[in-house]
Design a protein around this nucleic acid. Structure first.
Length: 194
DNA sequence: CCCTGATTCGC
DNA sequence: GCGAATCAGG
């Protein structure tokens, strides 16, 4: 498998949506997540904050030891926009030309409501939670393990209290549904050193 | 053990 | 340029 335009495009799209490398790899097929990550890096879109802010947190407890590796800050985005540019309503009101910034025009696709919401739990996530709680294992505190969702349900002061107990996803304390309401944001894993 | 992304390095 | 191996961490 090679990185055709289409595949790269899908990669960019999914990565932009915050999909994990493994998910992207699975979707693409024929590649491993390593390949995806490698490509992501080569494309220079490893981190999604390009907004000009020079926010490279690499200075931590670094006494000395500086790898001094060549780090090309590849930027320069080609202008080619393959497709999906509505460009509708050109005859509308004149553009003030004082656009604050390039506000991405939403292609009006079907599944794309990733509006930059600050902190707001999606109704879907909440719905998923209540749905999940129905089939929760209702574990007691002592029954919790490393791999059981520790989301509390009910009032601890009463006997009507239990923990979700569903299998957790990855090192998180909750199952997928509860992780969804516990924290919104993207995968936050930072810090790299060597 | 599951997963995540990051980096290295031989190809 | 590519990606498996490896690393580092949740």
């Amino acid at each position: 498998m090679s990185w055709t335009d289409e595949r790269v495009e899908l990669l960019k799209k999914m990565w932009g949506e915050g999909q994990s490398a493994s998910q992207i790899a699975k979707e693409l097929g024929g590649v491993t997540r390593n390949a995806v990550i490698g490509k992501v890096h080569r494309l220079g879109l490893s981190n999604r904050s390009t907004g000009g802010g020079a926010s490279s947190e690499t200075a931590k407890t670094e006494a000395k030891a500086k790898p001094a590796a060549a780090k090309p800050k590849a930027e320069a985005k080609p202008k080619a926009k393959p497709a999906a540019e509505p460009a509708a309503a050109p005859a509308a009101a004149a553009r003030p030309a004082v656009m604050p910034a390039r506000k991405a025009i939403i292609p009006a696709g079907q599944p794309l409501p990733p509006q930059p919401s600050a902190n707001e739990i999606s109704p879907e996530a909440l719905a998923k939670v209540s749905e999940v709680e129905k089939k929760a294992k209702k574990l007691s505190l002592l029954e919790l393990t490393e791999r059981t969702c520790k989301w509390p349900v009910g009032d601890p002061a009463t006997e009507d209290f239990w923990f979700c107990g569903l299998p957790v996803q990855a090192g998180k304390p909750y199952c997928e549904a509860h992780v969804g309401v516990a924290f919104q944001p993207m995968s936050s894993r930072r810090d790299r050193r060597r």
